[in-house]
């Protein structure tokens, strides 16, 4: 696979939220507005790129038996660095809104998932690009969800009013709204894929998320 493909697959073909279904917890929690989604997505991208590259560097040094604790330590270090940098340099309001979610990146399954499934088997540059692509894919999916939810709830985008006099639909801003909008997104994603398969004259098969994509148990 070329480097560009390593980057691109995270955005569309293997989008972590819409295809791999990883990191659902932050997806549901932080997509209540487009602005929050953007901040959370970029913080996660930074952690993903950093941890992926370091894990790829140490993949031959760290013994297999203790690899998971080592990965967790590396990821936790990057998350804490992001937290400190945000407290020091990010706008106060963004820091206040995202403050409680940043420590949760440690247990975001995308980060550990990519460490296990990709960075522990591939080179440093490929792993960095994989992290960047997965991070951008996560950010874009989160932002799309956040924008739709914010628009339906308050008629605003990035806190700017688009339609004056919108009757508030607060369900969309609360957790159930996240499930509803995500459901429609996944349905739309499947519809696109089914159409594409039909155009190519093939029968649609769901994405293969099988043991060849993951090595958590079969080492």
């Amino acid at each position: 696979m070329s480097y560009f493909q390593e980057f691109w697959k995270g955005i569309w073909k293997e989008n972590p939220v819409l295809v791999l279904m990883l990191g659902m917890c932050p997806t549901l929690a932080v997509s209540s507005s487009a602005k929050n989604a953007l901040g959370m997505g970029l913080a996660t991208t930074f952690v993903l790129v950093g941890s992926n590259m370091v894990i790829s560097m140490v993949r031959k040094v760290v013994p297999d038996k203790v690899r998971i604790p080592c990965y967790i330590v590396i990821i936790a270090v990057f998350v804490t660095i992001v937290e400190m940098l945000m407290a020091a340099y990010a706008p106060a309001e963004l820091n206040r809104t995202l403050g409680i979610y940043i420590p949760l990146i440690v247990v975001n399954c995308i980060v550990l998932g990519r460490a296990e499934a990709f960075a522990s088997k591939n080179g440093v540059i490929a792993s960095g690009l994989d992290g960047l692509g997965m991070g951008f894919g996560f950010t874009l999916a989160l932002m799309a969800l956040g924008a739709v939810r914010e628009f339906l709830a308050e008629g605003t985008l990035f806190e700017l009013q688009v339609i004056p006099g919108w009757e508030p639909f607060m369900l969309m801003k609360l957790p159930p709204g996240a499930f509803i909008v995500l459901g429609f997104f996944l349905a739309g994603m499947n519809l696109l894929k089914i159409r594409q398969a039909r155009r190519e004259g093939k029968k649609y098969t769901p994405p293969e998320i099988d043991c060849s994509r993951c090595n958590i148990c079969n080492r």
Partner: peptide, 20 residues
């Protein structure tokens, strides 16, 4: 090996902590 990873991680954190 796990101790070494923790040590390096701790040192990196201490550095960023002092800097920020």
């Amino acid at each position: 090996s796990i101790g070494l990873v923790c040590l390096i991680g701790g040192a990196a954190l201490a550095y960023v902590n002092v800097k920020t």
